[in-house]
Nucleic acid binder design. Structure first.
Length: 362
DNA sequence: CAGTCGTGGAG
DNA sequence: TCTCCAAGACT
């Protein structure tokens, strides 16, 4: 028996006993196949996002939109509000685009067809093909890259070494149970072959692991040094009208937080922004600036607050107050701070918020 | 290829 | 407090 078959066998045996129970997953080696809609939705949500963060969103989405036709028929703003807090909002925009294609023709069952859909790249296409349709696709994500780098002691740095790692993974991919195989590798990477301090004592592949033998597993995979993260500054304006309406805008459909609700404010730059409110009023400066960490910059946001009877803003519009959970996290921070400054306990009494956007808990 | 694009949990 | 980084896609 070739080495690759032994590795695959050990892996599936381990998975049959140790597979994580997840809402979008069927038990290993089971007769039933996972719903393509559930596989697709979970895979999109899981892009660069932890399982723990995804779970409640997956439950909420599938409860509210039980199938792809229901999602395709949803209003854009409802889906974006439901996605708020999960990050990488282009995923939600592409999710809708994709749903509206798939609702007509159904999900493609092959990798190439899936790859052609919005928001589905090489990883997700392979994962859906393998998990939902049993296609022996070579699934490559961050977990599997790490497992391959360690198993075969590949010491060149990412991302240059990726093709080599994919070739290694291809050599392990079985013709049968391809979905279980891919999920087994990801579970192994998430629970045993973790980035720091890998639990090699409990690894079903230890006997085959070249980097373990060499004592360097924890140092792999190598990565290129990362660039320093700049700090940007910005100004945001929270305005509450006497009737309870608040000033918000829908951000431009592309770019940072594209399509999401947010406070009106300046651009975020490394230069100090000027105070330039959307209308003249008694603006009160928030004493404590709001900080937030994005992937490629830190943000320091200065919040100004005004309570007014009426105003004609140059940007955004007054609307019934949405639930804070309808806003992306940085905007939710500023929004909740605005209410607090207005001396309103917005955390405990969701009743203050309008019902127009179907407030979630939080 | 390298930059853009969020967020929060873990150590 | 700080660093790392998670089931990546798109330009």
């Amino acid at each position: 028996m070739p080495e690759s078959a032994k590795i695959g066998g050990n892996l599936l045996t381990w998975y049959d006993a140790q597979a994580r129970v997840l809402p979008w997953r069927v038990p290993p080696n089971s007769e039933q196949r996972a719903e393509p809609y559930h596989v697709w939705l979970s895979e999109i949500m899981l892009q660069q996002t932890t399982v723990a963060a995804v779970k409640p969103y997956f439950e909420a989405f599938t409860r509210r939109w039980p199938d792809v036709a229901a999602l395709a028929a949803a209003r854009d703003e409802d889906v974006l509000a439901a996605w708020a807090g999960l990050g990488y909002y282009a995923r939600a925009r592409n999710l809708l685009k994709c749903a509206r294609v798939v609702a007509q023709s159904g999900f493609p069952t092959d990798e190439a067809g899936l790859l052609a859909l919005p928001g589905i790249g090489p990883y997700t296409a392979a994962a859906i093909a393998a998990i939902a349709y049993g296609v022996p696709a070579v699934v490559m994500d961050g977990n599997i890259e790490r497992v391959m780098a360690r198993l075969f002691d590949e010491r060149e740095a990412l991302p240059a070494v990726k093709p080599k790692l994919k070739a290694r993974a291809a050599g392990l991919t079985p013709a049968k149970r391809a979905g279980d195989h891919a999920q087994a590798l990801m579970d192994l990477g998430a629970t045993i072959c973790i980035p720091k301090a890998p639990r090699c004592e409990r690894c079903p592949l230890q006997a085959h692991c070249v980097s373990f033998k060499a004592g360097v597993a924890a140092e792999l995979p190598k990565r290129l040094p990362k660039k320093p993260k700049p700090t940007r500054q910005g100004v945001a304006y929270f305005a509450r009208r006497a009737d309870g309406h608040v000033l918000l805008e829908t951000r431009p459909p592309k770019g940072l937080l594209g399509g999401m609700l947010g406070l009106v404010g300046s651009d975020w730059t490394e230069e100090t922004p000027v105070f330039d409110p959307p209308f003249a009023a008694q603006w009160q400066r928030h004493t404590k600036d709001i900080t937030h960490v994005f992937t490629h910059f830190n943000l320091n946001l200065t919040l100004y607050v005004a309570e007014i009877k009426a105003a004609n803003p140059r940007a955004g519009s007054f609307m019934p107050a949405p639930a804070p959970s309808d806003l992306p996290s940085i905007m939710r921070k500023a929004y909740e701070a605005g209410f607090l400054i207005c001396d309103i306990d917005c955390g405990a009494k969701l009743g203050q918020y309008g019902k127009n956007r179907g407030p979630k808990s939080g």
